[in-house]
């Protein structure tokens, strides 16, 4: 009788323990997901293979870019965000290809594909000792601009590899509901 009770108690303890494990353990997707390295604008974020430093963010109503010698103006119903980032390779040559903009409500915006003809965008190949700047261009809703996080990784499936998470901080809103300091037209043909 005593033994039976002890067994039942042991079983209950095991069930409770397993349930506790299930509640407290990280999700499988988190375990094999990218490994975040966090920082702020202006800080150098050091990942496994690359370093990234977001220099500045500029908001614009329109973008001006060259397409095969012809000037093109890109308009938007939202707002353009152009982030200038300096990249550096660490131990070996590599390339950084993927960036996204995570807004305060959790909406994630990939880089725009409307600019694929322009220079100076991702993917950027980097060699050790030779830092290189690139522009990340996003087309956003104005309410996703403030307190956003910039996510940068070498490739799309960066499982168990570094992902730079750069907090871009609060952005004041002007009377037209666009971010304060939004320029009318940003000229991307100018050097960074």
């Amino acid at each position: 009788m005593m033994r039976k009770t002890a067994n039942i108690v042991l079983l209950l303890v095991a069930v409770a323990f397993c349930y506790g494990l299930q509640l407290s353990k990280p999700h499988y997707g988190d375990l094999i997901g990218p490994i975040p390295t966090r920082g702020r604008t202006g800080e150098t974020i050091v990942g496994r293979n690359f370093e990234a430093r977001a220099e500045k963010v500029v908001f614009a109503r329109n973008l001006k870019a060259d397409r095969y010698g012809e000037t093109k103006i890109l308009t938007t119903g939202g707002v353009w965000a152009v982030v200038t980032v300096e990249f550096a390779a660490r131990a070996q040559s590599t390339s950084v290809a993927v960036a996204s903009w995570r807004g305060p409500t959790g909406l994630a915006y990939d880089q725009t594909e409307r600019m694929s003809f322009a220079d100076g965008l991702l993917p950027v190949t980097i060699d050790p000792g030779l830092p290189k700047k690139a522009r990340l261009v996003f087309e956003l809703r104005p309410d996703e601009v403030s307190n956003a996080i910039l996510l940068i990784s070498e490739k799309l499936m960066s499982a168990l590899d570094s992902q730079a998470e750069i907090s871009l901080g609060p952005v004041a809103t002007a009377s037209d509901s666009l971010p304060a300091g939004t320029v009318d037209t940003l000229d991307l043909t100018q050097p960074m």
Partner: peptide, 16 residues
């Protein structure tokens, strides 16, 4: 093909 320096850093061929 790569270049390796004394510290073990590796450079891949460039397209630049």
């Amino acid at each position: 093909v790569m270049l390796i320096d004394a510290a073990g850093r590796r450079w891949s061929p460039t397209s630049a």
